[in-house]
Nucleic acid binder design. Sequence first.
DNA 1: ACCTGAACACCGTTCAAGT
DNA 2: ACCTGAACACCGTTCAAGT
Lengths: 217, 217
Amino acid sequence: MCRMARPRKPLLSRDRIVTTAGALVDAEGLEAVSTRRLAAELGVSGPSLYNHFRTKDEILEAVADAVSAKVDLSMFHEDDSRDWRTALHDWAVSYRAALTDHPNIVPVLARGPGRRPAGLRVADAVFGAMVRAGWPPAQATHIGALMRYFITGSALGSFARGFVDDETAYDPADYPHLGQAHLLAERQEQVDEGAFETGLRALLDGLAVQYAGAARR
Amino acid sequence: MCRMARPRKPLLSRDRIVTTAGALVDAEGLEAVSTRRLAAELGVSGPSLYNHFRTKDEILEAVADAVSAKVDLSMFHEDDSRDWRTALHDWAVSYRAALTDHPNIVPVLARGPGRRPAGLRVADAVFGAMVRAGWPPAQATHIGALMRYFITGSALGSFARGFVDDETAYDPADYPHLGQAHLLAERQEQVDEGAFETGLRALLDGLAVQYAGAARR
DNA sequence: ACCTGAACACCGTTCAAGT
DNA sequence: ACCTGAACACCGTTCAAGT
């Protein structure tokens, strides 16, 4: 009697697709995600996905947006007590943590906010808070953009990961100062962490200088 | 008599492949480069490329390296008179210009220096100059990395490009501060330029603060 | 040494067909 | 409404064959 009724609940949902795609990206990287592979992971055939998303790229955008949604924005709320500098700092740290938790999707995220709702919510929150703090709107726009540049750039271009763990790759005659470059691969996280912290502090110190000179009260 | 001799000079060379691939990337984007398409552009069949490069990725790496090779490094020469702050500034401007001239290859470049000779030459030059200027080696490493983060991040995540030129995409109820977001697409370059300049100045101001406190003489 | 055609194991996406 | 198999027009790469 159950079998003659209509329901037959769907095998797939946008949520299930995004979750599974995200797990696949995390586990095996962006290039492991083909529509056929993802569908197999979900126990369906490839074309089924097109009942829920228009393109594979839309799926990846949704995965990226789910990562953006994890970024803490509480410091930008109107009733939060943190000043703009502290808010920007805490936001940057939370943003970077979200990206380093899911490094394989960063190339998609780094393409810009696009139409992704959570990405836009982030842009909106930082812009609004900076204006409220007294930054001129044009500067508030710049701050949102440049912070994004730095944070996504650091998550993407992970400096140390770029060096190969093979001493023969770096002839000291060609790169007199990079003698120990291959060692960087071993302390990848430290270099990335240190560069991020140094850069973030410099950015905030420098913005404070400009704020003192340009922000209106 | 000519035809019986051996020469028959090769149709392809690494240089010709890289030049043609670079032009194709510039004109039609990364996704337009398939081995078959590139080969057709060169007047040969697809597999011919594999006589000169081991993989398609190696070709793209070479294209990216050719862009890195255009970055001015003269400010880091030992006999150049510019101080570290000016050198870093001029280098950043030249680096960004090289990337914005070839925006489509930036995703490849942003992956890190890897084994690309010109990319490594850049990393080597900035590290050496910063150490010479009195920065502790660890900080010099961080500076090279964080500047790269910011510059590639800005070339890649071009903030305004991320917004879609369609007002219906941004409901003011969802994004109270982004009412004019769709207008950004029109002034893309100004926003990117402004954010880059603001960020670069902040970064250099902030590093100057740290230099005053930490650099040894 | 360098180029070719054929082939392998894939892709993203469309579509008619089924329920 | 949602899933399927078959099909289309592609991919990157290998390899035996040619010169």
